[in-house]
């Protein structure tokens, strides 16, 4: 990192005086309240009774806070086993994605071979295709590989993302070629150059890609439904979706379930947020 990049942003010329800054804070805080309000409402509703949840006007605080909704959720959904499935699929998918994307991203950024532009264009074009178009074909492939109801089935398609390749390509492109030239002069082969020189330099982007992939993996619902027909390996999202049963609307239970299912990822995000934001910021995503 160059020193200027690390300098706190307030060094950015127009030193906002502390006197003027409160206006900015006011604007940002108002927006933040709007952003967070739905979560707050979800939390409050989760502790209400069904009757109170559909009262008009709504009560801002539960009259008699109750954990019944959580109990209902834990009773009706095998939370722990589904949590394990979610976590395993996530780990597998992240590792696979990082390996595939880093290799291909590097090749597209730095190696020259016939057809490179065409292939890259092909990959990027896939980004524009609505994902529902792939559904049946992917399912048939997984079935023919006899992987239905396995954790790899949940993880495999997500390992191959054109977006990941694009992201890694951008990151490698932003690294000065001087490093590779030096490695080449030292007699390092392409694989070694990749592994010991280039890869360490894009760590932040790898981190960002890992976090993003985790997100998609954790949130994925349609695909797990399709490839776990026997129900042996189903993630937490499926349990939550099942809550929206056929009839009626038990809002507190829905809110409680939504909260519990989202929580692990929110915690991960809060813990890793620094890596995440830094990674994205340094990834060349700036276009």
């Amino acid at each position: 990192m160059t020193e200027s990049a690390l300098r706190p942003r307030k060094a950015n010329g127009a030193k906002p005086s502390h006197r003027g800054e409160w206006v900015l804070h006011l604007a940002l805080t108002v927006t933040a309240v709007l952003m967070v309000a739905p979560f707050a409402w979800q939390l409050v509703t989760a502790f209400k009774t069904t009757g109170e949840a559909s009262q008009s006007p709504p009560t801002l605080w539960p009259a008699e806070p109750t954990g019944d909704a959580f109990a209902t959720f834990f009773d009706s959904v095998p939370v722990w086993s589904q949590f394990t499935v979610s976590a395993s699929a996530l780990a597998l998918r992240v590792l696979g994605q990082l390996a595939v994307a880093a290799l291909a991203g590097y090749a597209f950024a730095r190696l020259r071979f016939p057809g490179r532009t065409l292939l890259f264009g092909l990959f990027i074009a896939m980004l524009m295709v609505p994902s529902q178009l792939f559904l049946i074909g992917q399912f048939e492939l997984i079935r023919d590989l006899e992987l239905l109801d396995t954790i790899p089935a949940l993880a495999i398609p997500g390992m191959f993302s054109a977006f990941g390749i694009f992201l890694m390509r951008q990151a490698f492109m932003s690294i000065p070629t001087a490093y590779e030239e030096a490695a080449r002069l030292d007699g390092a082969g392409p694989l070694r150059t990749f592994w010991s020189v280039m890869l360490p330099m894009v760590k932040p982007t790898l981190g960002a890609l890992a976090v993003l992939t985790s997100l998609y993996s954790w949130n994925d619902l349609l695909w797990p439904l399709i490839v776990s027909p026997r129900g042996d390996n189903r993630p937490l999202t499926v349990g939550l979706a099942g809550l929206q049963g056929q009839y009626g609307t038990d809002y507190p239970t829905l809110m409680a379930g939504a909260l519990v299912a989202s929580l692990p990822l929110i915690v991960i995000f809060l813990v890793l947020q620094r890596q995440f934001f830094n990674g994205i910021a340094s990834s060349g995503l700036k276009g």
Partner: peptide, 12 residues
């Protein structure tokens, strides 16, 4: 992925 996700289930 998000759209796929919410399709929540469309298929299987």
């Amino acid at each position: 992925r998000r759209s796929a996700a919410a399709a929540v289930a469309a298929t299987a």
